[in-house]
Design a protein around this nucleic acid. Structure first.
Lengths: 357, 357
DNA sequence: GTTTAGCACTCTCACTCTCTGAGTGCTAAC
DNA sequence: GTTAGCACTCAGAGAGTGAGAGTGCTAAAC
């Protein structure tokens, strides 16, 4: 039955027109509205027939019998992957984005990416999310224990990528000079210069073993150190413009809250290696992402290696034609800014990526 | 006219009963419901008359003619300041709170207070807020500049209270060994041991002047240092359980979002010196706090000096009788835990405070 | 003078009914 | 294969209704 329906060019054109129109107005789209569009040359009746076919194929659906059509997940997917035509960014838009990124010369990577997120949130009225996988690929350049009060010590960990983590630890007993000396020496010896990626639970088991006699006193420090290293190993995710999601009719407020709370789980999704722009939908049975939401992300790289990702989360009905070029531009720009000067090697693969879309 | 109405004991009893009932059910309270309460001995008609009087006095209002009464701001105020009777915490409740605070022996002050906030949010189903004014009253115990990459430096600032701040700065030009030496030496000389409270803009003006020849290169570092010290001087505020506010019918979602975004402005309000528990209402014309919200806070102290505050924000219709004892218990407990051992000097004034309510 | 019972009145809320407009699917003509 | 015409469906708005809750007022009782 289903197999008989042919998806000809006109049907696709109509599908694109329906989704365009739906994205613009947010209302179910009827055959009449489509017939009135300049680039559609057939009558409403014909469109009705095609729309019925598109519905059978699963690309469109009706909220109720006498309403127009809205796109399904499948419809969106086809639209984004095949039908949509992306406009080039105008020169003004580019300079606007450049300006919002800030003065690249004095900005750390972290701030640069942060600014990109703020800009995205502002321009798209969606929540922006960024992850930074830099720490994972760096080495520990400094590790230190600093006494700061009575039985109070601060552990400091700095990576070659400029990430800094610290943690205050309160000990149950006072630390003798000898004990502190021993601990400091041990961690400098064993952690300094080690790559974050290679930090393992075994290393900490070994550390515990090495402390032997001191372990009762030192264990809060070891625990603190372990937690710090765990922080480093797990990609961090930051969001800006979360509030935008609350203004959004289509999204369930409670789901939004839950999502923001558990945003860290996003890293799982963003860890996937993919290139180019990725658009994912949050379906109802997905108990993590917000239902009827859409996540548009791209990765930026440093010297050819993945360094993090940047994107937005918003309702499924969102201006893809505007947002995708923004994200592409920003990730490319960031890639070239944080990579060592030779821009060509970085720019080329980035351009290639967009083809995949 | 208004002046003629006498507020006798029975009227106050009825007001308290109405508010109790309203807090319990969330529905407007009618005369019948009050008449049925065991401790009210008069008939519904009498109660009606008194309620009409209480309405004229501004303590109650009717959503519409044929509905029961709900408390006004004024009514809540009177209830909280005078009418409400606070129950003692049971032993179970106390141990529950103790447990949620965690193992005090190995917890830093920051974590302790954080746990208190989490516990409060959980138990009251409101958002909990904590501020920590400790940094303000401490001295800078360590200041350091750590090179971590190409033209990338981390400034590290540690206070005697165990607060750690850091910031990465990217320079526009490379730093000579001499320049770094000079800067490091200068800040150690001029900031180490200085009390956070006495950090001033003049000190930084002087610093800029002292850098003279190097200032072009060093200015990002000076700026970073300035921002760090600014962070220290401004009380920090953290919230937990923000999500609870979204489940709350009475509060406007958009207002909640705006509030969470601008929570830092809360410090202004919490900086006021007050003792005991303070309950504030967010009125509609107050463009900062959430409309129809209620904020219940108390301060904790370290060695007799204010050290921070702890409280909750929720709808105005909230279980004051439960929440207030919780907050009192927690602030007293924290006060005695973070103060040097002699508990009596700290406990006594704390107990006194509650009288003010 | 205060308290109470009784009663008429008011207002919201939930429910039903109806009407309208938008949009469809089907059929027959082009 | 495409189009015009028409009967049909359905959501949403608006009007009308009855029940229920609660009030204020009056007059009688304490």
């Amino acid at each position: 039955m289903k197999g008989c329906i042919k998806v000809d060019d006109r049907k696709l054109k109509i599908l694109a027109a329906v989704i365009d129109e739906y994205l613009r107005t947010g209302e179910p789209v009827g055959s009449k509205a489509i017939a009135q569009l300049a680039h559609i040359k057939v009558s409403a009746a014909t469109i009705r027939n095609d729309m019925a076919a598109l519905e059978q194929l699963g690309y469109l659906e009706q909220p109720h019998t006498s309403a127009g059509r809205v796109p399904t997940f499948l419809g969106y997917r086809l639209y984004i992957d095949e039908l949509m035509t992306l406009p080039e960014l105008s020169q003004e838009e580019k300079s606007k984005l450049d300006e919002m990124l800030g003065d690249e010369k004095t900005l750390t990577e972290e701030l640069l990416v942060q600014n990109a997120a703020t800009a995205l949130a502002e321009l798209t009225q969606c929540a922006a999310v960024v992850t930074n996988s830099a720490p994972k690929f760096s080495v520990i350049s400094k590790v230190e224990v600093i006494p700061t009060g009575k039985r109070l010590y601060v552990i400091l960990l700095i990576t070659s990528s400029g990430n800094i983590k610290n943690k205050a630890c309160r000990l149950e007993f006072d630390l003798s000079h000898e004990q502190l000396e021993f601990f400091t020496h041990y961690i400098e010896e064993n952690l300094s210069g080690v790559s974050v990626d290679s930090l393992s639970d075994e290393m900490f088991d070994k550390m515990v073993a090495a402390m032997s006699a001191y372990i009762v006193t030192l264990s809060p420090l070891v625990k603190g150190l372990y937690e710090l290293s765990d922080d480093l190993r797990h990609e961090e995710i930051t969001m800006s413009g979360e509030d935008k999601l609350f203004s959004c009719e289509e999204l369930d407020k409670m789901e939004v809250v839950r999502f923001i709370e558990r945003k860290n789980e996003l890293t799982r999704m963003l860890d996937d290696t993919f290139s180019g722009i990725q658009v994912k939908f949050g379906s109802e049975n997905d108990n993590f992402v917000i239902g009827n939401s859409s996540m548009i992300v791209s990765k930026y790289r440093r010297d050819g290696k993945e360094a993090g990702s940047l994107g937005v989360i918003g309702p499924m009905r969102v201006n893809y034609k505007k947002i995708i070029p923004y994200i592409e531009y920003l990730t490319q720009k960031i890639t070239s800014l944080i990579s060592e000067e030779d821009e060509y090697t970085n720019r080329l693969p980035a351009d290639q990526d967009t083809v995949e879309l």
